[in-house]
Amino acid sequence: MEINFTHHQTAHCENGVVSNLMKHNGFKVSEPMVFGIGSGLLFCHIPFLKVNHAPAVTYRVMPGQIFKRFAKRTGIKIKKEKFKSPKQAKDRLDENLKKDNPVGLQVGVYNLTYFPDEYRFHFNAHNLIVYGKENDNYLISDPVMETVTTLTSKELEKVRFAKGAFAPNGHMYYPIDFPKELDINTAIVKGIKNTCRDMLAPVPIVGIKGIRYTAKLIRKWPKSKGVKVANHYLGQIVRMQEEIGTGGGGFRYIYAAFLQESSKILNNNSLAELSKEMTEIGDLWRDFALEASRIYKNRSAKTDAYNKVASQLEIIADKEEIFFKKLKKAI
């Protein structure tokens, strides 16, 4: 059985699943809209936690938050299910497919066979859509892939029941109820306000303050951790910022696209101006990544080089602080 479903490639998996499921249900919602309304943008440096033996830095909110907020703000109801037994998880999935209902699944990346080997890490917050089943093969629409693909039922079970942080436990979700018309305008305002609050939060590891915290640590790393570890850490930050899924510049370009689209919907010119500003800030993040890569490429950098990229981050923090204060006033 195959549901008549159109696959659209997106930059990020969670945005993509939401946007594609919305389109399937007759609501044209772009990826940046989902990301902006769901207040996806963030910066957070989580101390003590290590990912791939390096500090955990994130440029986005917790997995699942984007869809949750998007649904709440636009008035959609979502059904979420988690399972103890793989058998039950499979049965519920098959039931939905029989009812012509494509569903979103949270999966682990490590056993996703269609991903290139070098991208398969133990990351459990990836999202995809299942839109049908042919014999033992599930038809998969993974938003970050150019085209649709398939997984055998055994392969699908493995990724649905991956273990470790954010273990999906078969997590399946789909929209069940829609308002007649989405109240996009108020949803946009709520989404923007939330992001401004997050980015300007008076918490030392979150938002602007989080960026400054990371900058401060980068200055210390070559001395406290040694060049080898410092380079590994720096590489990890760049990967979090630019790895498949961020659309470039640690989600800043997607956010700029959201502001541009919003300026037209809300008829608010200052949002269009702010979109341009966000694009420039995105460029600064790219410059930071480029400069950082020069350090870990050579593997024998001087302390000066670390200070330089740290300064770049501090400049970005200053700019984003001004930016989000302006954005808060613009709506």
């Binding site: 380079n231 590489g235 990890q236 760049v238 630019e242 990544a289 890569s293 490429k297």
Partner: peptide, 16 residues
């Protein structure tokens, strides 16, 4: 669509 960007390819290679 992009085929890749050196700064992150190097970061990935280093991680591997």
């Amino acid at each position: 669509k992009s085929t890749g960007w050196d700064p992150k390819t190097i970061a990935l290679d280093n991680a591997l």
